[in-house]
Design a binder for these strands. Sequence first.
DNA 1: GTACATTTCAAACATGCGTTTGAAATGAGG
DNA 2: CCTCATTTCAAACGCATGTTTGAAATGTAC
Lengths: 223, 223
Amino acid sequence: MSRVQTQQKILDAAESLFAETGFNDTSLRQITSRAEVNLAAVNYHFGSKKALIQAVLQRYLQVVMPRLEQQFEGLLAKQKPTQLPEVLAVFVQPLLELEQIKRQGTTLFLQLLGRGYTDVQGHLRKFISHHYGSVLNKFVLLVQQSCPGLDAAEIFWRLHFSLGTVVFTMASSEALFDIAAADYQQQADIESVIRRLLPYLAAGIAAPVMYPEQLNSMAHVAH
Amino acid sequence: MSRVQTQQKILDAAESLFAETGFNDTSLRQITSRAEVNLAAVNYHFGSKKALIQAVLQRYLQVVMPRLEQQFEGLLAKQKPTQLPEVLAVFVQPLLELEQIKRQGTTLFLQLLGRGYTDVQGHLRKFISHHYGSVLNKFVLLVQQSCPGLDAAEIFWRLHFSLGTVVFTMASSEALFDIAAADYQQQADIESVIRRLLPYLAAGIAAPVMYPEQLNSMAHVAH
DNA sequence: GTACATTTCAAACATGCGTTTGAAATGAGG
DNA sequence: CCTCATTTCAAACGCATGTTTGAAATGTAC
């Protein structure tokens, strides 16, 4: 078997298992068993489990990130600031294109992203901000331009809130799909979830800021 | 040493380690070491690691849930439907009271909640909906009344989006606190994060629904 | 077709895990 | 003080993990 065939079989088996069970709770024996290769093949071809995890993520990141960067640059080059919903809509096309590269590609990638952020605390965050910091900066800049009423700190928090929304939804998307299909007879595919996500995120990010007095009065009213 | 002393030391050590590292990645040896008790004490006093996890969560749930239920019932008894921000504000007081019971109690509980939802997929979800389903139903009912324009399926998705926001934010709150303090010189305590969360969540949940045509036009514009 | 490099494979390694065990220590009641 | 139940403790158990090893198999070039 050629080198690339074995590596690909390992990557395919690993990514599906990682998405299902998380990185820490997936063993190399599960991976090599599903990939139908020898246990030692992972360490031979990738060096370690940690390197395998990075390779699995990189396969998607190196496709998505350049496309995002290109789109962001296009919007930044325009004279007028872009509206927030349009900034967020930039993600749709590149993410859905992962579906063409590989069946379930979009779901898998977003689930992996979720796992990476929740499993091993901060590891993935550092990896992404180190390798793709410029892409993220351009996105943040666009959001800031589209929401002139929000200061940098508020945007920082709201973008992390949004990251949590996406990442958690995708990490538990399998369960949510099942419930939605059973209780509400809905088509539950990744695209329709993204369609539901965008207005939620746009409204949350652009929400009017609430001042402490309002919060206190709210808590008082609620008594 | 009395039974309750040992059990409490174990619970205290376990909850902080669970919050930091997650349930699966925290070993009984770490817990008993920090608690300064013998390794076998966990199995002697709690039966198993799984039972310990439930005990850790129950300590907070049995305080928070009755208070929430009481508040929700009060709002449901009113004639006019409650405004969404006030419904969400119900959570503030009971959560912040955990701080009095124990230092860092609010943060710990919310972090544990986040861990429980992301670590072992669906386990905590079933536990909560089984034991406290009536509380959650009352909350959902209040949200539905406050958002008459949204159908049940839309609310289902948006409440799970919101759960993701909270849970992810709390699970990674330590890292976020550090970044916020370093980059934006902010006080980064749990209360100020909750203060920031509420308007984000309220706006997201009550966002105008977006129809497919709008999404397509957005994606088109973004090209 | 031989020589060499690459890749596979079964087996073992060291380590850490949750749990169990049986004896020692400690507690409370008569 | 003796007795008995409760709690602690060191040690070991069985198992699963990531990784390493050295021989066997396979591929490649001359």
